[in-house]
Computed example of a mutant assay.
Amino acid sequence: PWEELRYVRNYKPNRHDVKHLRVLLHGPAGAGKSSFINSVESVLRGRIAGRALAEAEVTSSFTKQYKTYKIQKGWPGDFYSFVFNDTMGLEMTEDRGVHPEDIKMALKGHVTDGYTFNPASKLSDDSKYYNAHPTKNDKVHVLMCVVPADKAALLTEADVRKMKDIRRAASDLGIPQLAVITKIDLACQEIQKDLKNVYKSKYLKDKKFSDFAGIPVNCIFPVKNYHEEIDMKDDVDSLILSVLRRIIDFGEDFINDMET
């Protein structure tokens, strides 16, 4: 994974008016969105990190506020050229979890840090958390759907409808999308034995996931988040780094196509 790590570490957007790629995470409650952010930070800093609070067993969404996560490079004030925004989970019933309109507003850069998600109502344009004039830095450049492998089959129609709704909004804005399947070791014994079996797994070649997520198979990435581990592992790192590299490639293409 060293070459990928160097690629990620050296990345800077080509455009002078964009200082970082913004990646928005969405998906069902308990999918591992916050854990993915922690895992990225762990891989890049070379030690287990736990800044984006994540709960072990989740039935309702733990993330309530919109927050931007930057990852420090070497010294204070020096950050990687991409940031993550975590959103409240899409929960099983229509009236819980994040309001899809809030995610659509976040995609366009209208939602600011500190906004508390409210399932019953969307962000209003007279709120102090509403950004009326988003810059290119405020807008989302990559949308990432996070789905847990062990529960993908249990997603309800309401979940799938919300995900499709969000995906359509991103497509209308031309925002590139990819999906990450987490908890792959819980869904497949072969992977549990050895993470290197990940690409041989029949489970991950199942086209049904691609069909319902509406994302091409080559844009769906398996990962194992750092969860119970206390030491870093190369095979875990390399899966996460391959996602980061693809995020950068997709995001850079999108930024370059943005109007001046």
Rank of each mutant, 00 (worst) to 15 (best):
A31Y: 06
K12V: 09
L53C: 04
K207S: 12
E228Q: 15
A49Q: 14
S42F: 06
F209H: 11
F212P: 04
L204Y: 05
G50T: 11
V160S: 11
L239D: 00
S210F: 03
T87V: 04
S127P: 11
V8T: 09
E3A: 10
E252W: 03
H227C: 10
Y66A: 02
S201N: 01
T68K: 05
K104D: 13
Y199P: 00
K151G: 02
L143I: 03
R51D: 08
V18Q: 10
R168P: 10
Q189S: 15
K70G: 03
L53I: 12
Y11V: 09
L123Y: 14
A29F: 04
D206A: 10
N256L: 08
P1A: 14
V180Q: 05
D172W: 13
T156I: 00
R167W: 00
I191Q: 04
G214L: 02
P216S: 12
K233I: 13
V23N: 04
N131G: 11
E41H: 08
V8D: 10
G32Q: 05
D185L: 08
W75Y: 13
C145G: 10
V223N: 01
S124R: 13
G32R: 02
L186I: 08
D206S: 12
G77Y: 05
G109L: 05
T93F: 11
G214V: 00
K104I: 14
S81T: 06
R6P: 04
A49I: 14
V142W: 02
A31W: 01
D231P: 05
A158N: 11
L24F: 02
E55V: 12
Q192A: 14
S242D: 09
N10E: 12
D249Q: 09
E41T: 07
V98T: 05
G174I: 04
T260D: 14
A179N: 07
D206M: 06
D249T: 08
K136A: 13
N197C: 14
N118W: 14
T59K: 00
K122Y: 13
L107W: 10
K224P: 00
K128W: 14
A169Q: 12
R246W: 04
F82Q: 07
L241I: 06
H99A: 11
I215E: 03
G74W: 09
L239G: 05
V83Y: 04
E94H: 14
A170R: 14
I255Q: 01
D125Y: 15
K104W: 12
T87D: 10
M144K: 01
E259Q: 08
G109D: 08
D237P: 11
A106V: 03
S61R: 06
V147C: 02
L25K: 01
L186E: 07
R96Q: 07
I37P: 04
L107D: 10
E229S: 02
V146F: 05
L173N: 00
M232F: 12
Y80R: 03
S81C: 06
Y203F: 13
Y11A: 05
I71H: 00
K64C: 07
R96A: 11
F250L: 15
V217I: 14
K151A: 09
S238C: 15
K136F: 05
D138Y: 02
S34T: 03
E3G: 10
K224N: 00
A170P: 10
L5V: 08
V236K: 12
D253I: 15
H26I: 08
I248D: 01
R15W: 12
L239V: 01
K70Q: 07
E4F: 01
W75F: 09
P28H: 09
I175V: 12
